[in-house]
Design a protein around this nucleic acid. Structure first.
Lengths: 215, 215
DNA sequence: AAATAAGTGAAGGCACACCTTCGTTTGTCG
DNA sequence: CGACAAACGAAGGTGTGCCTTCACTTATTT
């Protein structure tokens, strides 16, 4: 019981923790993962030191907030496995994931960035495994082009991030146009000349692990 | 003669100006348009004050360096107008422009950003006018899908920027895969369900004019 | 060769973001 | 209720990038 009590935060601390989490969710959504921590503290109406005490560094806060979003990704990918039509499952998943990016700048960055923490990478791996199965099913059904791979979805997310980076505020539907075009190219019955090879998983992993892009 | 002499820089100043330009070209290519000016000065082996005297602010230096790249863009677009095959002209142009982005991080940003200076915007407008003609020709020839517009090329450049932002260093060929996929979707004989509408030119203009993305 | 206009770079001021320290306040438990 | 562990927040130190100032140097002109 004592150990249990000592594990719990004091009531005021718990309240502040919630305020910080809420503010961080909004700030990451609106400004991306690089938003100054002082801005989050300000939005939470909490002193910066309080934030640092609760979350020792940015990574810790990112991890706390993004865990939910990663869970959404897993859920979407595993739900797609259950959809009836293999093509609809695939196309719907692509649209859903890109929609998650459109709705949240932090998620946009998170989906194309690797983190040094298993709390985020384990769900990502689980989601990508489901994605691979969705892709495989649609390929076997003959509706998805045979040369499409899981890496291609990552490329699509990176491309979507690029469009959103420029258009999120001023043309918030523009990403749908790009994704519509890309999905059109994914249909097996529309395959033209052979594509350049997909990057290796290793290279893509490295791409996602290096310092956050552009930022 | 005096006026002319007074227009010219002193010899040492001219040399330093060249050093700065050369260093800036490399730095913008490798690190993007946001590279610290002090880093450019360091690379040029020149004091930061010397750089500031020659180029009063970052915009001035960007303008000086990017003018050449914008000229390349114009040249490529106008050359495409002369190519024999309308589809090859279009596809070749897309690949060329995206290749320019792949080769230079500063160009990647420049092609999806508006600048407040006519020295860069006039060539961009001229290039885009040629692009529109290339698109129109390929559409009329029946090889490019009828709903493709000039705005779509901008979306493609933004998408390419997103992929390059993550993969430039570790998977430098990845962009070819994305562009191959997208070009596949551009063929008229592969049109599937109707695309979501393209963003208006006005909205895209606004998107390109707002603060540089991510960065 | 002297005069002078132009150029140079060391040093510093400003703004911002990160993160820590430390004296004060406040829940919580006996 | 009183004591103490925990939490709070004001203030400050560090690092970095922007841009300017000013005392000194150097190319050019006559």
């Amino acid at each position: 019981m004592e150990a249990c009590k000592r594990r719990r935060l004091r009531r005021d601390a718990e309240i502040n923790r919630e305020r910080i989490m809420t503010a961080a969710r909004v700030a990451f959504r609106e400004r991306g993962l690089d938003v100054p921590l002082e801005e989050i503290a300000r939005r939470a109406e909490v002193n910066i030191a309080t934030l640092y005490r609760r979350f020792p560094d940015r990574e810790a806060l990112i991890e706390a907030i993004l865990a939910d979003h990663m869970a959404d990704f897993v859920e979407a990918a595993e739900a797609a496995e259950l959809a009836d039509d293999p093509w609809e499952a695939f196309a719907g998943l692509v649209e859903h994931v890109c929609g998650m990016q459109a709705a949240d700048q932090g998620v946009t960055e998170a989906l194309t960035t690797c983190f040094p923490t298993a709390a985020l990478e384990a769900p990502r791996a689980r989601a990508m495994a489901a994605v691979d199965r969705v892709i495989e099913r649609a390929r076997r059904a003959g509706t998805l082009r045979a040369d499409f791979t899981g890496q291609d979805l990552i490329l699509i997310m990176m491309a979507n991030a690029g469009v959103l980076g420029s258009t999120r505020c001023t043309a918030p539907q523009a990403w749908r146009r790009l994704i519509g075009l890309i999905l059109d190219a994914c249909r097996a019955d529309r395959v033209g000349p052979p594509l350049p090879p997909a990057p290796s998983t290793k290279d893509l992993q490295a791409a996602m692990s290096s310092a956050r892009p552009q930022r």
